[in-house]
Every structure is written in structure tokens, then in C-alpha cells.
Simulated assay, not measured.
Amino acid sequence: MGKIILENIRLFGYHGCMSEEEHVGSHYTTNIEIELNLNQASIHDDLSKTIDYVHLYCIVKEEMKINSKLIEHLAQRIIQRIRKEYKEFLIKHIKVKVCKENPPLQGDVDRVCVILDD
């Protein structure tokens, strides 16, 4: 077993329940952790034997462009898309963390985050 981890993917998006969030947008940080068997990739030095982290970044970037009221929904879409596009790898576990930077709260909060484990 092994893990592929993408940390601190920084993108801009329009997610939230307040109307201003749909127009102003916010910065988001996403982390992905995928557990799977990396034995063949480590032995054969062959990209086709593993999940391409460049494509994982593209999945996050594309899903970030689709507005959601909840970052929970965004995180779930990312998980579903990874599972769909990489079903041949028999992924054991996916963990996605999505953080909204500087959320529109009436207080001093750096970010709010959700973590979904699948």
C-alpha cells in the first residue's frame, strides 16, 4: 500500500449560501490523500501503473469551477470523480479536505474546513 497526497491546492471559487459569495468568490485550499497499492508503479517506474497527480489537480480545478452552496458538496464531488475516473486502481481510501479562506463570518477566522473520508 501507499498514498498519493496533494497538499494545499490553492484555487478561487464561488461557493457559499450567501448571495455575495456567488458574486465575490473566495480563495480555497484543497488537500487530497488517496490510499492504494503503489507496488507496481514503484517497481516498473511506469505512470500507467499509478494515479497521475497532474490529473488529480485538474479534477479539483474543474470541480472548483462548479458553484456549490456547501463545501461538503464540493468535497463529495471530488471524491466521486476520482473514484469514477480511477476505478481500475481499486482505491482503498480517499480523504479530501476543502478550506474556505477568510470566510464571511462576523469574527476573526482564517478559514473554515471540511474533511470527507471515503
Rank of each mutant, 00 (worst) to 15 (best):
M1Q: 07
M1Y: 03
G2F: 02
I5L: 01
N8D: 15
I9Q: 03
F12W: 05
G13L: 10
H15T: 08
M18S: 08
S19Q: 11
E21P: 08
H23Q: 12
V24R: 02
S26T: 00
T29R: 09
T29D: 11
E33C: 14
E35F: 05
L36N: 08
N37F: 10
L38T: 15
I43Q: 09
S48G: 13
K49A: 12
T50Y: 08
D52S: 10
Y53L: 04
Y53T: 03
V54Q: 10
L56D: 11
C58R: 10
I59G: 12
I59C: 09
K61L: 13
E62F: 04
E63V: 05
E63K: 13
L70D: 03
L70R: 02
I71F: 09
E72Q: 14
R77E: 14
I78H: 08
I78T: 07
Q80V: 01
R81P: 09
I82G: 09
K84N: 08
E85I: 01
L90D: 15
K92A: 13
H93N: 15
K95S: 15
K95D: 11
V96E: 09
E101T: 05
N102D: 14
N102M: 00
P104S: 09
P104H: 02
L105E: 00
V109H: 00
D110I: 00
R111T: 04
V112P: 10
V112L: 13
V112E: 09
D117P: 00
